[in-house]
């Protein structure tokens, strides 16, 4: 197996092959980004919910079960808004439609565009939380001191795994004014 004549050429071939691995692995690191998205989309692993409205398909309401849906909100870094759910939690039967309201007020002295990003915990339940209408599908431009009530219409899929009786829906509000401006 030993090559008894190590020539510069044979080194060059080996180096080329190895550089191919290096470049390939660098690309692989970036390929993980879309792969991760696809993987999470299929498994609902990261608690991401649908980002487009779904139509309500009534497969019947399962009145034998009651699921508690809790709402929490966070303001991402320094966005000077008041942002809160009007009710903390609601009990629903799987398959049943509900509308809940969120309150937002821009407390800054200038207009700000906000974007709320939803996340469901436990993550595995995210695929069963269906939003028919949500303020998170759109940007929220608010003038200084403007306030608004925003609606979320949703239902919980009847196929929600039996062992899950409580869902927490968290909204994180981001200031995207700068991003919009730079577009």
């Amino acid at each position: 197996m030993t090559s008894d004549k190590p020539t510069p050429q044979s080194h060059t071939t080996t180096v080329k092959k190895l550089m191919f691995v290096v470049v390939g692995m660098f690309a692989f690191g970036f390929a993980l980004v879309p792969l991760y998205d696809v993987f999470c989309d299929i498994t609902g692993l990261n608690g991401k919910t649908n980002d487009e409205a779904v139509a309500y398909t009534a497969d019947g309401i399962d009145t034998s079960r009651t699921v508690t849906v809790q709402f929490i909100t966070h303001n991402a870094k320094q966005i000077p808004w008041k942002f809160k759910p009007l009710i903390q939690q609601i009990k629903v039967h799987p398959g049943e439609q509900k509308v809940v309201k969120f309150y937002a007020k821009n407390q800054a002295t200038q207009a700000i565009v906000g974007q709320a990003v939803p996340s469901v915990s436990p993550g595995i339940a995210a695929g069963y939380f269906q939003k028919i209408e949500c303020f998170c599908f759109e940007r929220q431009p608010l003038q200084a001191d403007e306030e608004v009530e925003m609606a979320l219409q949703f239902y919980v899929d009847v196929d929600l795994p039996k062992d899950i009786s409580t869902l927490t829906l968290s909204y994180t509000l981001y200031d995207i004014s700068e991003k919009i401006a730079s577009l």
């Binding site: 190895l18 691995v21 290096v22 470049v23 390939g24 692995m25 660098f26 692989f28 690191g29 970036f30 980004v33």
Partner: peptide, 14 residues
């Protein structure tokens, strides 16, 4: 090293 250092380079770039 040649398999994972490029991944580190990728993630620090991100």
């Amino acid at each position: 090293l040649i398999a994972v250092m490029p991944v580190l380079a990728g993630v620090v770039t991100m």
